[in-house]
Design a protein around this nucleic acid. Structure first.
Lengths: 343, 343
DNA sequence: CGCTATCTTGTAAACGTTTTCAATACAAGA
DNA sequence: TCTTGTATTGAAAACGTTTACAAGATAGCG
């Protein structure tokens, strides 16, 4: 393996000069620079990143810890973060833990080991473990940012969507369409009672909208599910529809949930959207391909990832940057699954 | 930051001994070992991974280069690779390039810089660039494995599905159901004429099955699309259905394509699956949530990722391992979208 | 021409670890 | 007791870079 020394020898300069050329520093005579570059080309020299990372104690790597289950949302978010980081010269160590404590532990060690410059965490609902992890990271001077969940410790930057407002908007949409008897299949709700999780927030928004906007609205809630999968949606949807035949709309607090409900409705022979309006939440790819296409409260997933990445980078580059809490708005995408109530 | 020296001083041993303890080598007296461990705990010492990676020139990181567009398939594959690698003690540098040459270049440099131990590549159809990249990697002694595409260079291990057989199976399924006039919306076909790409293979299988299994089958092919998205499927599906009203089945060579076709059919007022059977290919999550649920030729995505990872690890640990070409079978998942032809 | 400021370059010292080599201690066998 | 082999340990040399410091060269200025 050809090292800086070989280049120095061939170009007849010192290794310091080669290093300066490689790193693009000023104060190198053009002839010398050219000679060095020629030597580099001749030998096919390539800086040993392990050595330079070691020397500078900078890895240019950031960890992305995705605790929640692998979902379309997660992967879209990861992708947004990765590309943004890439453009800023950072590389991403992706850590999908599925909430497995052991795996988290190991990943955290890797990150510490690699001296990652920063970490973006999408925490799951339960945060006791998270807090400990975050403290460990910050003790070592590693910047941390949260995405999709507000931290309990306010000293940490975060980027979240306003799930309360999103729930509110969704409910308003349904009410404005004339629906008065509305089912809500709620998922993504932390079981430990932490009320900051996205699911609970959405439900809060839904409640508030019902209270604000119409006196005659009746909401039927499913039990609050922790997981928000297609299967959960299908089962809860089936139960809800058969148990409450007079429902005219169902709001799933997740697209996958809503899609599950849609299937249940189909299976029960309902004609969608005529017999039942269905509204989702997330705006993931899948919501665009259902039949009928799913109206949904869309999250700006890409923007979330982007802003989270840029925020973290801000902290990494300037440790004194004060933390900031970014809240993004969700927006209703009206597609075919929600229609006005026929009287 | 506390280093091995601090530990050595506190435990009153040499740094060599500390290193031995940290790395779990034999030949350390139990008392000494305990003393060192105590010192480590007291000081909160943690090995500097950058330093040890540098010293050993081993990063324990593998690159995963996903060239093709971000799709459910891609992310499922990435996840499978990541978890397998994790279990084997490796970490993954995820490189989504979307086929952007500049991005690929930069990622490749990062990988070389970081001295990744190996790289898994899912190449896109066009392989001229790939070949150059692979050579560059191998020159530096970095193991390479392909996933989802056979390499032109046979010296490289690969894991692929038998797309020919998959196409064949799909066609057989439709023929056995009695369909004789079948549309094929073909995507994922490399434009450069390389016939080894998955799309072309599937089409070959389809052709062969038609030839083998029935004399009276008529196939209407769409143009071969490079992308295999929902939108492409919808448009091609609409054109195909309106242009050939007597079709009784359509085979999309990708789930997203088939889902697009399904939408087109819905939009044209067809009653699915009665009026038209639709078959997909991939077995991604989305195929299970359509209405009607999509019959599909499922790829063992997780297994592919897993085997690719293990194969690469094999090469990394034992450079003399001879390359192997693994071919996995696709299997038909019959759901609701394909039904026997009513006479 | 001499002085000073600025450019350019090289020397050498880190960075924190792993690992080779040699030295010591100790136990077992003769 | 002497020898020999083995277990345990430490000293010191890497690994390839970056960078502080110093020194020499050059240019600008009076």
């Amino acid at each position: 393996m050809v090292t800086i020394k070989d280049v120095a020898k061939l170009a007849d300069v010192s290794i310091a000069t080669v290093s300066r050329v490689v790193n693009g520093y000023a104060h190198v005579r053009p002839e010398v620079r050219d000679a060095v570059n020629k030597a580099i080309d001749t030998l096919g020299y390539r800086r040993n990143g392990l050595a330079s990372s070691f020397r500078t104690q900078q890895s240019n790597i950031v960890g992305v810890l995705l605790r929640q289950q692998r979902t379309p949302f997660s992967s879209a978010l990861a992708y947004a973060i990765e590309t943004t980081m890439f453009d800023q010269g950072y590389r991403v160590l992706l850590c999908s833990t599925n909430g497995d404590a052991e795996r988290e532990e190991a990943y955290l060690e890797t990150m510490l080991d690699m001296r990652v410059q920063g970490v973006i965490i999408r925490p799951s609902g339960t945060t006791s473990r998270t807090t400990k992890q975050v403290n460990l990271l910050r003790e070592r001077g590693i910047s941390v940012a949260f995405v999709d969940m507000k931290p309990k410790i306010p000293a940490i930057s975060s980027v979240v969507c306003d799930n309360f407002s999103g729930g509110y908007q969704g409910m308003r949409h349904l009410i404005e369409l004339g629906h008065r008897k509305i089912g809500v299949v709620a998922g993504g709700v932390a079981q430990k009672g932490g009320s900051q999780d996205v699911g609970s927030e959405r439900v809060r928004g839904i409640r508030q909208a019902a209270q604000d906007l119409a006196t005659d609205v009746e909401i039927i809630f499913s039990q609050p599910f922790e997981t928000a999968s297609f299967d959960v949606g299908r089962e809860a949807g089936a139960a809800m529809i058969t148990g409450n035949p007079s429902l005219t709309a169902i709001f799933g607090t997740t697209d996958m949930l809503a899609i599950g409900v849609m299937h249940a409705a189909h299976a029960l022979g309902l004609d969608l959207p005529r017999d039942l309006s269905i509204l989702g939440y997330d705006g993931v790819l899948e919501s665009a391909v259902t039949f009928p296409t799913l109206s949904t409260i869309a999250q700006p997933i890409h923007e979330m990832g982007q802003i989270a990445a840029m925020t973290l980078i801000g902290h990494m580059r300037e440790a004194s940057n004060s933390p900031r809490q970014v809240v993004l708005e969700n927006t209703l995408i009206q597609r075919a699954s929600t229609i006005p109530l026929e009287n």
